[in-house]
């Protein structure tokens, strides 16, 4: 993707669906929508740090929705992303018990589309829980599993990026880590139920 060149919604969706182009899609979303999304939050009682966190969570939910084929293109990406971010932020404000009068007006201005993005709010809550579980797994396990399942690297390539002795040690470690994560999920029915909702 040429840097700075405008792209259509269809092209952006295509980038998001193709695993190897996802970074370009995320960069484009940041360059195009970060400023507006940030203002949406800072104007509605959020700090600059809140804005950065919420935008990141919102983009993650949006990519999940697109990958699951649930973004039907009835609105533009921009409109959908703003509605999703707004709903996530409103939900966060409610949780913090900081719903001011102005934010209540902001909430009441929800339209049909915004209600349809509530699915994203549920995803965000489940994602937060899941990311906490992954954090508990420890840096070493997270790295090896991410390199294998997210970056799609072979055992040989992972060996070059880590300090393990040989491929068999990498393989054993990966199995042990995945087993640990699987057991955490299977021992936590509430978490498993949430995961079913966010994972296709």
């Amino acid at each position: 993707m040429k840097k700075g060149a405008p792209i259509s919604d269809q092209e952006l969706l295509q980038l998001m669906k193709e695993g190897n182009e996802i970074d370009d899609a995320i960069r484009y979303i940041y360059s195009e929508y970060h400023e507006g999304l940030s203002s949406l939050i800072t104007y509605n009682s959020g700090s600059w740090e809140d804005a950065q966190d919420i935008i990141q969570e919102s983009i993650l939910c949006f990519i999940q929705i697109v990958k699951e084929g649930k973004f039907r293109g009835e609105s533009s990406i921009k409109t959908f992303l703003y509605s999703l971010t707004r709903n996530i932020w409103l939900n966060e404000l409610k949780k913090r018990g900081r719903m001011e009068k102005r934010n209540k007006i902001f909430e009441e201005s929800r339209d049909e589309l915004e209600n349809s993005t509530m699915d994203g709010v549920e995803k965000r809550e489940a994602n937060k829980q899941l990311l906490e579980i992954l954090n508990e797994l420890g840096e070493g396990c997270r790295k090896i599993l991410t390199l294998f399942y997210y970056e799609n690297l072979s055992m040989k390539e992972i060996l070059m990026q880590t300090e393990f002795e040989n491929e068999q040690v990498v393989r054993n470690k990966k199995h042990k880590c995945l087993k640990q994560l699987t057991e955490t999920i299977s021992n936590n029915p509430a978490l498993a139920e949430n995961l079913k909702r966010i994972i296709k």
């Binding site: 993650l60 999940q64 990311l131 992954l134 399942y149 999920i185």
Partner: peptide, 29 residues
């Protein structure tokens, strides 16, 4: 069930990987 939990764990790792990429790109931006 066993297979389903294993699939969830793998999908969770992918989601964590995606989240980490977004965080890195956000920092770069």
């Amino acid at each position: 069930n066993q297979l389903s939990y294993l699939r969830m764990a793998i999908e969770s790792v992918k989601l964590g990987g995606l989240n980490a990429r977004i965080a890195t790109i956000a920092d770069e931006f």
